[in-house]
């Protein structure tokens, strides 16, 4: 069950502040890294919402991210719609896809659920890849960024865009945390803990899971909208299942079922990738070792482990 503890608040605030500082003090390249972290962090929060609090481990969040990006791109670059309409349509498209996947897969458990989401994600990938209207494997370019000049923000400035992305991370986290503390979120925790019992108490569990998956997908779609604006170009690469795999790695590295951990995990993974990547091409190996260590050490992830230690200490103090 989710509680917005001081440690979570502190962690999110500290990671976001550090990244903002890094973007402000750094040049173009650090800002690109911050944007990459921000997009991954939003995806990781959205995945942790369903995986960590609903027990639904998804391998199609990359595809949903791509659907959000493509819907926004198609609406602005092909349809000529304004960015607000495009945003709403993209969020709705991601949520609708999530509702469909969630409704179909809700009664499937464990590894089969993961395989079902993978299959749906691959279908979306193939559809986009084969679609001439969406540019096929050439992708789509000429995507507009938000025009926030009315409030004095220049989205074409790399620093301001990076800070905007960080703000969306905070919004996504706050939205997920809010919903997890709501009636809906508590019920979702109940399903995660004991679905059979929730049904015996009168809950239509599959419908609840489908709605949860849809909400998570909407957050993933938001990351996609930013991704489309970031490069102002979308390609089927966004929907490849390895994107989903990377998000899952981030969630596990940061701490599954902690919501704050995945944000730290995203920062850790991307920074490791770039820092180690500067020395060797084999940075995957180092990340791999890191992941193995994180899983072997109790599977709580970096943030999850810290949270665990502090709780143990608090418990000992209470006993003393």
């Amino acid at each position: 069950m989710f509680h917005q503890t001081p440690l979570k608040t502190f962690t999110v605030a500290a990671v976001i502040a550090a990244l903002a500082l890094y973007a402000i003090l750094g040049g173009y390249f650090p800002r690109e890294i911050v944007i990459e972290i921000a997009l991954l962090a939003i995806l990781a929060v959205s995945l942790d919402f369903v995986a960590g609090y609903g027990g639904m481990v998804s391998l199609c969040h990359g595809a949903i991210y791509g659907i959000g990006a493509y819907a926004f791109a198609g609406m602005t670059a092909i349809g000529g719609y304004d960015t607000v309409t495009a945003t709403l349509v993209a969020l709705a498209a991601a949520a609708a896809f999530g509702l469909f996947v969630g409704a179909v897969a809700a009664n499937i458990t464990g590894i089969f659920f993961i395989m079902a989401t993978l299959a749906f994600g691959q279908m979306a990938y193939v559809v986009v890849f084969e679609s001439r209207a969406l540019g096929g494997d050439d992708g789509l370019s000429g995507i507009a960024r938000y025009d926030l000049s009315a409030i004095g923000i220049d989205m074409n400035d790399s620093l301001q865009f990076a800070l905007f992305c960080l703000a969306v991370v905070v919004i996504a986290y706050a939205a997920a945390a809010y919903v997890l503390r709501s009636t809906f979120g508590r019920t979702l925790s109940g399903i995660h803990s004991n679905e059979d019992r929730m049904r015996a108490l009168g809950l239509t569990a599959w419908r609840h899971k489908a709605v949860a998956f849809s909400f998570s997908s909407m957050l993933a779609g938001a990351a996609g909208i930013l991704a489309a604006q970031h490069t102002q170009f979308v390609s089927p690469e966004l929907l490849v299942w390895t994107v989903s795999g990377e998000v899952l790695i981030v969630v596990i590295l940061g701490g599954l079922g902690t919501l704050a951990g995945p944000i730290a995990g995203a920062a850790l993974l991307v920074l490791l990738k770039h820092k180690i990547g500067a020395y060797t091409e084999h940075w995957h190996l180092v990340i791999g070792l890191f992941l193995v260590a994180a899983v072997m050490a109790g599977g709580r992830g970096v943030y999850g482990q810290i949270e665990y230690w502090l709780r143990q200490r608090a418990g000992r103090r209470a006993d003393a």
Binding site: M1, Y178, V179, R181, S182, T183, F184, R186, T187, S189, G190, M198, L201, G202, L203, H208, V211, F215
Partner: peptide, 23 residues
Amino acid sequence: RENLALAAATGEGKTSSFFSRAH
């Protein structure tokens, strides 16, 4: 307490609101 609250709220049919805290 959390166990009983889950059962009580579900029994009241309060499970789906994003904006209230029935529990």
